[in-house]
């Protein structure tokens, strides 16, 4: 009786863990959030003067903002990878395993489409929609991961999507919403993940 229960428990664990990538480190989230806040503060001097108007940006300003955005994205990605790599080498989860590959692909597709869409928005001068677009596409990418990773990711997805939609009504504060969504939410998410999965 007790043995059968243990067997079922073991089966359940294997079914769950073998189909989800659970190696993502909480520190990855915290680091990504901090990088996002740094990125937002770098962009602030350029954006702040036009917060009310939505305004016009010169080509060099657009280039600088794009570079900050790209730099933030890459730095966050690298740090997230390093922390996750460090965690997976301690536990026995393969970082380039089937689950992580599938998860990466699920995230890449909506992110790439979002990236193309946002670049086009910028080229049409619709700057105000960039921050809401980032939040919404990122939220959808996270949502798409579904049961491929830990459940907390879904809550982060809902938060990003809702925040992104709200920011559509306040596009003049886009950078603030961006900083909350990518900075604050990531730090909270990372801290929660760390507390729940990494602490020991």
């Amino acid at each position: 009786m007790k043995q059968e229960l243990e067997t079922l428990q073991e089966i359940r664990n294997l079914m769950e863990n073998s189909s989800r990538f659970i190696g993502l480190s909480g520190w990855s989230g915290i680091a990504a959030g901090c990088i996002a806040l740094i990125g937002a503060s770098l962009a602030y001097p350029i954006v702040s003067g036009r917060l009310e108007t939505g305004g016009y940006y010169s080509n060099p300003e657009i280039k600088t903002l794009l570079l900050i955005g790209l730099g933030t994205f890459i730095a966050a990605l690298i740090l997230a990878f390093i922390f996750t790599y460090a965690k997976t080498s301690k536990t026995n989860i393969p970082v380039f395993g089937k689950t992580s590959k599938r998860l990466t692909w699920t995230i890449i597709v909506p992110t790439l489409v979002g990236g193309i869409f946002l670049l086009k928005l910028i080229s049409y001068g619709l700057y105000g929609l960039v921050a809401p677009g980032c939040l919404i596409f990122y939220g959808i990418a996270l949502f798409a991961t579904g049961k491929q990773t830990v459940n907390e990711t879904r809550y982060l997805a809902y938060c990003e999507i809702i925040l992104g939609c709200i920011s559509l009504w306040k596009i003049e504060y886009g950078l603030y919403f961006w900083a909350i969504g990518f900075g604050l939410f990531h730090i909270l998410y990372g801290a929660r993940m760390w507390y729940k999965y990494d602490r020991n």
Binding site: T7, E10, I11, M15, S18
Partner: peptide
């Protein structure tokens, strides 16, 4: 235990290579 483990993993993932199975089990 091991046979049960193999089947549990494969029933949700359809297929898996030897090394991944080894690491998980």
């Amino acid at each position: 235990r091991i046979r049960l483990g193999i089947m549990s993993i494969l029933v949700v993932n359809r297929e898996m290579n030897f090394n991944s199975l080894k690491e998980m089990l």
